[in-house]
Computed example of a mutant assay.
Amino acid sequence: MALVAALLVAYPTAAAAADDRFNGLMETDHVKMTVDRSEEVARLSRGVLPELRLVDYQRAPYCREAAGMWVKGLDDGTCAPGADLAQTAVQCEVGDTLVMPMWMRTRVTPASPWGPWDDIDAGGCGVDLLPVLTEADFRLLPLPAPTFTLQPDRGWVLINIETIVSTDPTPVTLRTELLGYGITVEATPTRWTYDFGDGHTLTTRSPGHPYPNHDVFHEYENPGTTTITLNAEWTGRYQIDGSPIWRDINGTANTTTTSPPFTVEERTSRLVADLCTDRPKPPDC
Results as ranks from 00 to 15, higher is better:
R37Q: 12
P212A: 08
Y238V: 06
T28V: 11
I159K: 13
D198F: 01
D20L: 15
P207V: 01
A253C: 07
S269D: 09
D118L: 09
Y57S: 01
H30Q: 14
T257K: 04
H200L: 01
A66G: 09
P116L: 00
T201V: 08
A16W: 07
N250T: 11
T167C: 08
L202E: 11
W192V: 03
L143F: 02
W117N: 05
D75C: 00
R64N: 01
L74Q: 15
K281H: 07
V35G: 05
V71H: 01
D119M: 12
G95M: 05
P244Q: 09
V71N: 02
Y181M: 05
H30F: 08
E177H: 06
A17V: 11
D19H: 07
D248Y: 10
H218Q: 09
A83Y: 10
A253P: 03
H218K: 09
A15D: 12
L133K: 04
N254F: 11
E93W: 02
E233W: 00
H209N: 13
T149E: 11
M104F: 02
E162L: 07
A5W: 09
I159A: 08
G242M: 07
G208Q: 04
T235H: 08
G95F: 06
V172G: 10
D168Q: 05
H30M: 11
L7N: 13
S259R: 02
P261W: 01
L98N: 09
R154I: 15
H30L: 13
D96F: 06
T256F: 02
R64F: 06
S259H: 05
